[in-house]
Amino acid sequence: MQKIRFGTALYIGEDSLKRLSDFKNEKIFIVTDSFIASSALLPQIRSYMDPSTEILVFSEVIPDPPIDNIVAGLEYSKDFSATILLAIGGGSAIDAAKAMLYFGKLTGRFSGIRFITIPTTSGTGSEVTDFSIITDDEKGTKYPLITEEILPNEAILDAGLIAGLPPKQTADTGMDVLTHAIEAYVSTNANDISDALSEKAIRYVFTYLERAYKNGGDKEAREKMHMASTMAGMAFNITSLGINHGIAHAAGARWHIPHGRINSILLPHVIRHNAGMVEGNYGKNRTLAAGRYAEIAKFLELNAGNVQAGVRSLVNAILALQKKLSMPKSLSEWGITKEQFESDKNRVAEAALADRCTETNPVTLTKEDVIHILRKSFI
């Protein structure tokens, strides 16, 4: 038996920010980062709020928010008695707000609070999930916090807020969407509903990501990628993810690689390994996952005359998209040295296997398997 819950109300379209004007006499605690706080976005969003609202802004969220960052936000807001928690930004801001919500509820401070998210990137899907990723800087590890307690009540999806996202960040976040959708599609928890969401998100990425990358003002491309991010988030909130994210959390924390970029580097190698198509041996160790990857190739109208051809076509399509987005294809191209790799590979592999996202990978992996994926990703 599976439980499928869509607990986040979505406000979408050009006028979606008007939802904020519905709140009167509220105390709104805004969690964001310094870039958003110093840009025109925050005043734009605040302009929709009723004058009766009282606002407190915590703008100290940093990328891959560590535990200390969460504690700082909780301490900053301790005397405010917020009635609404509003996260504005990318995955880091939303994840930080989720962690603050979780620990705040433990102490009774945020009991009954309404949690609203306004994503300003099209990538994490965090606005509709009960996942939050928190970093332990001392251990160089990322930990997924997974609980329905942190599922947002509402998400406001205004693609106009994404128009100024630079090409590199557009590429990173877009490839994160693709990884979410593909991992959800092959997850051991996949079902018809998650498949439908994943398929639509994958189609949108291959149709619109390059357009959004080349022209940030392409309104249609931005809107479709924003929806793709949310649909992929809804999919993996049902299914969880896999070893791609397990490794990305471990390697990203240790080597400080942007999350979408490390996911992109790993993705072709994870697909080949999960499909049993490694070391050029395409006839052995075929897995059920191979058939699922081939299904993706078929609905993308790639060459998929048989399972092997479908997997190869999907991998080649991903590599071609990476090239169009000028993304690094290996850890060494990103800048990881041989010495760094050899020194850290065992700890990264161990952390990846312990990551909760790895539990729903379609293939059970050993430490040696993960190191093999890492080596292929390094070259």
Rank of each mutant, 00 (worst) to 15 (best):
V31F: 01
A40V: 04
K18D: 07
F29S: 13
G335K: 13
F103V: 09
P328E: 09
I243L: 11
T207E: 15
D355L: 04
S187N: 12
I150N: 09
A212L: 06
H269I: 01
I45N: 13
A352P: 05
S240P: 04
I67K: 14
S332F: 02
Y204Q: 14
I84F: 08
S21W: 01
L365V: 14
K298H: 13
P119T: 00
E148T: 02
N25H: 14
N191H: 05
I133F: 10
A96H: 11
D15R: 14
L151F: 02
V363G: 09
A196I: 08
R5N: 08
F6Y: 13
L165N: 07
A40Y: 02
I12V: 03
E60Y: 03
V307D: 12
L101Q: 01
I271D: 10
V31N: 02
P167N: 06
K329E: 14
F58I: 05
D50S: 00
S81L: 10
L85Y: 06
E149R: 08
E26Q: 15
Q44S: 12
A349G: 14
I134W: 13
A82M: 13
A275V: 04
A289Y: 10
G7V: 01
F131N: 15
E295S: 00
N153E: 02
I133V: 15
S187T: 07
R114C: 10
N281I: 09
S240C: 09
Y185L: 01
L209S: 11
A93Q: 04
A289C: 14
E14L: 13
F115G: 10
T120E: 01
E183H: 04
F58R: 06
